[in-house]
Structure formats: structure tokens, C-alpha cells
Design a protein around this nucleic acid. Structure first.
Lengths: 227, 227
DNA sequence: TCGCAACTGTCATTTTTCTGACAATTATTT
DNA sequence: AAATAATTGTCAGAAAAATGACAGTTGCGA
């Protein structure tokens, strides 16, 4: 993983775009940078919630565990994303766990400092609300899909989404690197690994995609879109 | 339905508590009151989104419709609740429909006025974020439950929640009036009316509850809690 | 009060989803 | 390079959920 300074990361964090020098200084003075190795926890469920986090590099997994110990994978976060924001809004216990899916670099800010900043910069507060609204919509969509679509369909949708997010050109062959395991895809779609496997092979048989453990190659994007 | 003045409603709206006179005046000057009859729409999916709404009396249903016309019941809103807030955050098309489940009274504010207000009163903006966070948590919970719990269990949970929300005393007999139909409960728990019916009868057979079409009577609250 | 529409109870059937098993393949560690 | 661990492919059986049918009940408006 590339190593850069805290300043560099903060300057390039989209959430903090368009702030004054003074505001940037406030942020610099009130954040610390931290790194975690793969599988290290950032926080656990039920922990006291003191801080908000800005992910710079790597991948953080947000999960909730039921009483029976079953894991619900909420999301996998990528650089530029924010987590632990509930603390800023008066939630003093973590409702979920944050664990490094891959080794990661992030900045940490105390919740009261973040609140101070939001009250100081109203436009940032609005941006913060926007962020929450986006998450709400995404969660809402997932809930609807779970209600109305079959396992098979949700897995197909997931693959489509993967392709949409990682392809630049519109046609020709698209290769998606760094594939998630079937197990992870199953968790993200609320299905099971066997069915994920079966959908992948269904697409392979129909020559819509080809894949190995490292990547997915989309052969016929049109066919995938209406599969 | 009791009829009161716009001022009366606004003064008693929790979201607007603790504002200055000046701010209250701003709100008064930038809201209009509206009433709708049962089954009237406030807005439809895909409509342009101009306004935010503050529900005063009655009940508003928030639903999303799939391409196939299937309805997903997001929530039933009660007095004191806010809806259509996505418009304030730059969403210019409604992602969902708002329809009067019962005849209702609400106040309407233009989205740009609401944004103006939020920028003017930072503490209100924070409250707004809090509201979104609460909804996110609720939706998240529903998603988890759908992933991990059986239909039977979710229906039981729903009944428990009903009881919890409408009972003041902790023991003795509790009566819950204005029962939802089995169909509505099925929609809210992502199950089907037959199974709702079956759970109700299961509880009735075990003398945990008794019910008719108007109310539910909880006979053994303890048994319900660990049913 | 009658009749209709909405709601409820129940069952049988079909469809979907879950689960365990096990072999085969690939990646990682020693 | 061998051993070990993780991942994938496939299947069969079990469990859960969805659906359609239909009779019975209740509430409401004409």
C-alpha cells in the first residue's frame, strides 16, 4: 500500500472539498492517522463510540452480529468513504463492527470535534445529511430487492452492478479484477455460496461471462444486461 | 379529526422545538397547511420533488412500486413525523409514493426554504441528520431481520413491537385498538397474509392473546415476550 | 336489513431456499 | 515440493415460503 502524509489524504478527501484554509487547519489539528492490518478490528459492536473515521486506503468491512453469532455483512467500504458516523449523532454505542477486510489507512476524529465542525460549517452539515440519505436509499433498495427478487435474480443484479461500477468502456470485453469469493457475494446478496456458484456457472455455460479465481471477463455485455 | 390552526401545529412539532421567535416566524411564513382525504396521494414516484412535509394528523403511507407494479410498503407515518425530506438533499425525483392511509393534515415547505432554514440554524441541521440516521438504523434492522429470521419469527416480533409501543403499564391485560389488517402486517414484515393469520391463531390457541377485528388483547405478556 | 366487499381461517400444492456432503481445484505455507 | 487451507462445483434431501383455492365472517353502505 502506498504511504502518503495525513495532509495529503485530507486534502484529497472528497467530503472535505471546498473548505477554507482555516477550516482545513481545524481538521488537520483534530485528526490522527491510523493504520490497521488485515483482520484487525477498528471497533466492535457494543464498544463506546467516540470517533468518526475517514477511510484513505484499503478496505473496511462493516458487519453486525446477531445473538446467535451470525454475521450480517452491511457493506465493504473503499477509500473516500466515511464510517462510524453514528457517534456524531449521539449514538454512544456501536451498533456494528468495523474490521479491516484488507490492511487500511484512515483518519480519526473525535465525535465532539466533528460535531463542532458541522456546526461551524453549515454546508458541510448538509453534505453530511446527504451522505446519510444516500446510505438510506441504498439500504432501502437492498431491502426491496430482498423482498421481491429471487436469490438467482439478486445474484445476477450483483454481478451486473459489479460490471457497471468497474467498466469504463461500454462494449467489447470487460475484465473485472480482484474478485470477491462466492461466499462474500452470498453475504452481500443474502443468499448462499452454492447458489452464487450456480449462477456463475449458468452464465459461463451460456458464454455470457468467463471467470477464474482472479477475475471475471464479460463476453457479452448485452446478454448480461438482460440475463 | 380535530382541526387546529397551522400555528398550533407548528408550535407543537417536536422537530421545531427550541427555536427562536425569529426562526419560528420564518417557518410560519414559509409553510402552508394541507389536508388530504383517505387514499389521496401527496406525491407519486417519479414526481418532481419540490417540498418537505410535516405530518400533523392522520396517517401517511410511504410505498415504492416495482416495475411489475408490486407495492413495497416502506412505512406508515404518524403525526409528528417528517416525509419527503430527500428533496432537500438534492433528490429532484421522488423515489417513493406518499398516499394518505387515513385522511391527514400536514404542513408543506419548499425544499429551498428548508435548506435555507437548515443552513441558518446549524443545530436544526444536526437534528435533521439525526432523523436520517434513525431511519437508516430502522431500515438496517428490518434488512437484518429479513435475512436472519423466519417469517414466523418476524411476525411475532412485529406483534411484540406493537404491544411495546402501545402499552403503558407493564403487566395486566393490554388492549391494542385499531388493528392493522393481516395483509398490512404481511407487507410490513415481508411475509404473507396466510402466515400472519396462522401466527395470530397460534397465539390465540396458546391463550397468549385474544383478538377480533378491532383490537388485540394481550393475556400473558410474559408468554408473548418469549413466545 | 340486505348484499357486497373486505377480511380471515385453513389446507394442499408448488416453488424456492437452505443445508450438508464430498470431490475437485486453486492458493498459501512450510 | 509437499502439505495444508481455502475455495469452488455439484447434488440430493429437508425445510421454509409462496400461492391458489374456497368457505366463513365481519363491516359497511345502499
Amino acid at each position: 500500500m502506498e504511504r502518503k502524509s495525513k495532509i495529503w489524504y485530507l486534502e484529497n478527501f472528497n467530503f472535505f472539498a471546498e473548505l477554507t484554509m482555516e477550516q482545513r487547519t481545524f481538521i488537520r489539528q483534530n485528526t490522527v492517522m491510523r493504520t490497521v492490518e488485515k483482520n484487525d478490528p477498528v471497533y466492535f459492536q457494543e464498544d463506546f463510540a467516540h470517533s468518526i473515521y475517514f477511510l484513505k486506503e484499503g478496505c473496511i468491512k462493516i458487519s453486525k452480529f446477531s445473538e446467535k453469532g451470525q454475521e450480517f455483512l452491511v457493506t465493504l467500504l473503499n477509500p473516500g468513504e466515511i464510517f462510524g458516523e453514528a457517534s456524531v449523532l449521539g449514538n454512544n454505542k456501536r451498533q456494528e463492527a468495523a474490521i479491516a477486510e484488507e490492511s487500511a489507512i484512515f483518519c480519526v476524529m473525535k465525535e465532539e470535534k466533528m460535531r463542532e465542525l458541522l456546526l461551524m460549517v453549515p454546508i458541510l452539515n448538509l453534505k453530511f445529511s446527504q451522505l446519510l440519505e444516500k446510505r438510506l436509499e441504498k439500504t432501502q433498495k437492498r431491502l426491496e430487492d430482498l423482498s421481491f427478487k429471487s436469490n438467482h435474480q439478486r445474484i445476477l443484479d450483483f454481478i451486473r452492478e459489479l460490471v457497471k461500477l468497474s467498466s469504463t468502456s461500454d462494449d467489447g470485453e470487460i475484465v473485472i479484477p480482484n474478485r470477491l469469493t462466492h461466499e462474500k457475494i452470498a453475504q452481500l446478496t443474502s443468499t448462499n455460496r452454492q447458489e452464487v456458484s450456480s449462477v456463475f456457472n449458468y452464465l459461463k455455460r451460456n458464454r455470457v461471462i468467463d471467470y477464474n479465481r482472479k477475475s471475471i471477463r464479460v463476453l457479452k455485455i448485452r446478454d448480461l444486461e438482460r440475463a
